[in-house]
Each structure stands twice: as C-alpha cells, then as structure tokens.
Design a protein around this nucleic acid. Structure first.
Length: 553
RNA sequence: UGCCUGAUAGUAUAAUGGUAGUACGACUGUUUUUGGUGCAGUUUGUCUUGGUUCGAAUCCAGGUCGGGCAACCA
C-alpha cells in the first residue's frame, strides 16, 4: 500500500553487513563532547544513530567524548541527556571516554613497546613547523629515534606529573612524509594539569581525539561508527590504531552535517551568541539548540520528522529553515488547541446587543473533534484586531470596513455601522450591530460573509505577554557570508507585545500543550509565566495568504 | 599547488545500465465559520567534453566548480 522508502547509503551498508552475516546485530553510538548544548545538527546525528539501531533491531550507546578537561562540564552532560531523552530516544548504555583512560594509557604503552610511538620534547611551534605543509613533506626530528625503554620511562614520568603542560607529548610513529597531514606522526597524548569533570585530578595526561574515539568504539564493540564529513581524513588513522592495537575493528562512516538557512550550527558561534548576550542563554527560543526549540514549542516529533525528510547523504547541503517550520506546523495543526487572542486591540460596541454575557461553545481543535469544546464569553463590548479594520478597504479585503459584514468566529455576523474617532481623527472605536439569527451552529440568517475574525470580550479578557520571534540572522547562508557572522544578526528577531488580550480559557489550560491562536500562529506557554502574567512564545506563524495577496497590489 | 571528498528542479532527496520520481517552495483551482487546514492540478533538473553500450544520472577518461585537511580541539 504505502511505497517503500528507499534506503540512504548508510542503511544500505548496514543491510549489506547484516545480510552477509558480518554482524548479527548492530551497535551504534552518539558521541557528543560535553562542551556545549546540542543543536538541530546533533538531532540529525541522533536520529541517524538511534534510528538505525531501532530500524535494524540494534542498540545505541550514549558516549560522552570527554578527553579535554578544560572545555567540558557536568552542566553540559546533563543537558545532553535531557535533550536526547526529549527527542524520544533511549540509549543502551551511558558511557564516557574517560571510563577508558587507564585502558587508553595502556594502549599507548603497547604502541611504544612496538616501537610505534615516542615521546617528543619539542615545542608545539616546532612540531607544527616540522610537520610541513600539505604540499611539502614533514621532517623527522631526533626524538623520533628514542629507545623503547626511554620512551616508556618518559611516558610514565609524564603520567606521574613530573612535567609541566606542553613540555612533552606522545606521538604515533607513522610517516612524516604522508600526503595525509593526519598521518604525520600525530600527537596521541598531551600533558594537561587540569581538573576533569569526572576523573577529578587523577590524570594529568589526556588522550587526543584520534587516540580515544576509535579505541572507545572498539572497546564497546561499536559496529558502525558514524560521524561527519570532516573526519574523513582521520579515517586512515582510526584504522591504523585499530590495526596496530589488534582490537575490535569498528568501521567509520561519514555523512554531511546539517546546515540550515538563517542560523548558525557551530558550538563556538552559539557559545559566542550566549556569552556576548546577543541572545538570552542557550535555550533562547531563537537559538538552533534543541533546548531552544523545545522552549519555543517545537514538538519532538516534528524534529524527528524533519530529520527523516532531509535524508542522509555525503553532499554538502543548506536546508531551508522553512522545511523545519513546515514539519512543526504539520504536527501542531493536528494537536494544538485553538484559542483567540487579540494582539493590538480595537474596541467595538455591538449597539443592539443586551447588557449581558453569553457563553458560546467553540471547538478546541476542528482537526480532532475528540478534544471537545470550551466556552467563550461574548458581550456587548469586544476587542478585535486593529489590522482587521480599514476605513477605506482595498479590493479583495474581506475584513471589517464601514457598511461591511464579517463573522466573529464561533459567534455572530456583525456589521460596521459607524466609526468613532478621537480629536486627532484616529479611529477610537466601532459601533456595530449584530444579526441575532446568525449565531454559530444555528445560523438561519442566510447571509454569507467572506471574512471571519477572532475577538475577545473586553470584560472577561485576560492580559498576556506575547513574544514573537523572527530569524536570528538576516542572510541565508550565515556560515559562508563574508566577514563576521555577528554582523548579520537580525536586530528585530524578538518583538514583545506586553499587553495582549486573551480569552479566559487560557488561564486554566494545561501549560504543556501547544496552542493555535486563531489567525495568528502557534504558541506555547513560556516558563517565565507567573500566576499574574501569562507569557507566550510564538512557536511559528501560520501561513499568511493575505500577506501575499496584499503584496501583489 | 599535494592528498581526500562531492556535483540530479529554487532547496533537499531517490532512481544501483532500462519511463528522471518524491517532499518542501512557487503558481492555479476548489473546500472551509481561521486569507489556516484539506483536496486537485501546474511548474522547474541529471556540472561539462569525449568514450563504452541497443540503451548512461549511473560505467570509463579528461575538464570545471564546491567542500575538507597543516589545534598539545572534537
């Protein structure tokens, strides 16, 4: 019935490995460094790694790549775990590269014993110089020929804390003339007298990424180690270590990282936005972090759907941010409760309506009638949106104007009889009349109107703060824009409406559900809300057909 | 100027030697008590030049263009 979705290139590899009997089941891993918050790019990797295991009956480990104590913190570990869980995935084991520090140290000892690693006393500048350039081979220095015994002693002394940071490193002895820069005797251990968030002060030597990642994969028996394209040049080294150490041969595969329009995806840049107060923290709803999207009201399911839609390939990409927004709307349209909120009020008085309050019923969600209805108080004095009235209306304008009729959503059809102005000639309020037979659900008026407006009753409305978010950057391809990315920050990315008028149901609604403010967009209650003041974040706007039509004119 | 990688509608992604398809976007119509949603339809593409083949997006060779690599970061 439904069409078979074609496999991405990694799924093909997995299926081939399973069909050939190379593996009985697969084990993947998601390996973040706990030095920042996860962003939507990580979500792609999470969905890939966990999704693969789920699809093929395998498992996925959550492994923190915590080999650099100077940048890593427990705060980040906690946020990462929360984000992965919120996205809807469960890891088989929670592991840390730091769990393997002793084992990793012994691996380096083994390499030294085999004459495949040595202690180098050179400065980092000297090492960089001797490394050569991509077009010129590097040169071998005198430390390279130290004896095994001396290397062993020196490495033990490094571990014992006899040297200062930078005094010595351990290098793999591979090939200083290799066309691959990563194979020119890469550093595998360095001295860092730093406090580690898990191992404390136990260690003062730490393995480099290239000497920790592959080995960690191998120790855990990871079958498919999936990373991004920039690690392709590291693969020969990944394989060299596994071969020389004679350990489980995990395989590395690379896919193109996610790039999105109007945002940045590097931890360094996100950190900068936070530290320099361009945004209000890692979970500022304008950020590309998972925690920001959660706070903004993006459902986890829509992020998973997005990751599924964008696919997995090796080509560099720049995905339209609007595709993510499409996924969010698609999900929220099915689940969000409809409510009415007026952002910029214009008072109307229904002159022929009695001085009473009537309760009208309206669906919570017309897409899902099982969600029931709520009552909305209707009375003589109402607010409508200022932009829903024009004294002189252009053609195709279906909203209110003098002498014209519109329907008030779930209520009555009204007609604008008179415009009341203040001394300056500004529209102050509208005098309207309603059609009693036009009540929603029992309309016998026979009148058809083109426009339907949202509204709230003045007397029963409640105050709310609305935060409207726009793209954080003004250009599509921020990472490739010339100059400093901060020059492209959109100064108007946050607009706050401090006194919107909301229908009273919102006061008692479950704060965890998503809302659609009719004709306005999708909104979610922010954690800054108090008992006295509701605060809403706009998750995403509705598609606006009229804005497009109006632009044409 | 070395090595590694990639190139299919505007953006992504599929077709694995046999009809270039799908999604988002855009546009048109239709439904609608949200100018939302839904439904129907239209639109635009194989980087280039040769070669192999009955047949090439796919295989081969050359070119062009893009990305990555010279952290005691990951």
């Amino acid at each position: 019935m439904s069409e078979e979705k074609s496999l991405n290139f990694i799924e093909e590899i997995v299926e081939a490995d399973l069909n050939s009997g190379k593996y009985q089941s697969i084990l993947t891993r998601f390996p973040p460094e706990p030095n920042g918050y996860l962003h939507i790019g990580h979500a792609k990797s999470i969905c890939l790694n966990f999704g693969l295991a789920k699809k093929y009956g395998g498992k996925t480990n959550l492994r923190f790549d915590d080999t650099n104590p100077s940048t890593e913190e427990t705060e980040y570990v906690d946020s990462i775990k929360e984000d992965v869980k919120w996205l809807g995935f469960e890891w088989a084991e929670e592991l840390y590269a730091s769990n393997y520090f002793e084992q990793l140290y012994q691996f380096a000892v083994q390499l030294i014993e085999k004459g495949l690693a040595y202690v180098d006393d050179s400065s980092s500048e000297a090492i960089a110089t001797e490394k050569g350039t991509p077009t010129q081979p590097g040169i071998e220095n005198t430390f390279r020929s130290r004896s095994v015994a001396e290397n062993l002693q020196l490495f033990a002394d490094m571990r014992a804390g006899k040297y200062q940071d930078g005094e010595k490193v351990v290098r793999a002895k591979i090939d200083m003339a290799s066309p691959n820069m990563h194979m020119r005797d890469p550093i595998i251990y360095r001295i860092k007298h730093a406090h580690h968030h898990r191992t404390g002060d136990k260690w003062c030597v730490y393995p480099m990424y290239d000497f920790a990642h592959g080995q960690s994969d191998s120790i855990e028996n990871i079958t498919h180690s999936i990373c991004t394209l920039e690690f392709i040049p590291h693969r020969p080294l990944y394989e060299w270590c596994i071969e020389k150490l004679e350990i489980f041969p995990s395989k590395q595969y690379e896919f193109a990282r996610l790039n999105m329009t109007y945002t940045v995806m590097s931890k360094r840049k996100l950190l900068q936005l936070v530290n320099e107060n361009h945004v209000n923290g890692w979970d500022d709803p304008r950020m590309s972090t998972i925690s920001a999207m959660r706070r903004r009201g993006y459902p986890a399911e829509s992020i998973r759907e997005f990751c599924d839609k964008i696919g997995v390939a090796k080509r560099e990409n720049l995905i339209d941010f609007s595709l993510l927004e499409f996924c969010v709307r698609e999900q929220l349209n099915k689940t969000a409760y409809r409510r009415m909120v007026v952002f910029d009020p214009l008072k109307i008085i229904i002159t022929n309506y009695p001085d009473t309050t009537e309760l009208l019923e309206s669906e919570n969600n017309p897409e899902d009638l099982s969600t029931g209805t709520r009552s909305i108080p209707f009375s003589k004095e109402l607010y409508i949106e200022k932009e829903d009235f024009m004294e002189v209306a252009p053609k195709k304008y279906f909203r209110l104007s003098p002498g014209q009729m519109v329907r008030l959503k779930s209520a009555y059809i009204i007609k604008c009889d008179e415009v009341v102005k203040d001394d300056n000639g500004n529209v102050k309020e509208l005098l309207c009349s309603y059609i009693p037979e036009s009540k929603s659900g029992s309309d016998t008026s026979g009148i058809n109107v083109k426009g339907t407006l949202h509204w709230v009753s003045v007397a029963t409305s409640i105050n709310a703060e609305i935060r409207l978010y726009d793209r954080l950057f003004k250009v599509e391809d921020v990472a490739n824009a010339e100059g400093d990315f901060k020059d492209y920050i959109n100064a108007d990315s946050l607009q706050v409406i401090s006194n919107a008028y909301a229908e009273p149901a919102l006061k008692t609604d479950d704060p965890s559900i998503g809302f659609q403010f009719i004709r306005k967009g999708y909104f979610v209650i922010d954690r800054d809300s108090t008992n006295d003041q509701l605060v809403f974040n706009r998750t995403v706007s509705l598609k606006d057909g009229w804005a497009k039509e109006a632009k044409k004119a």
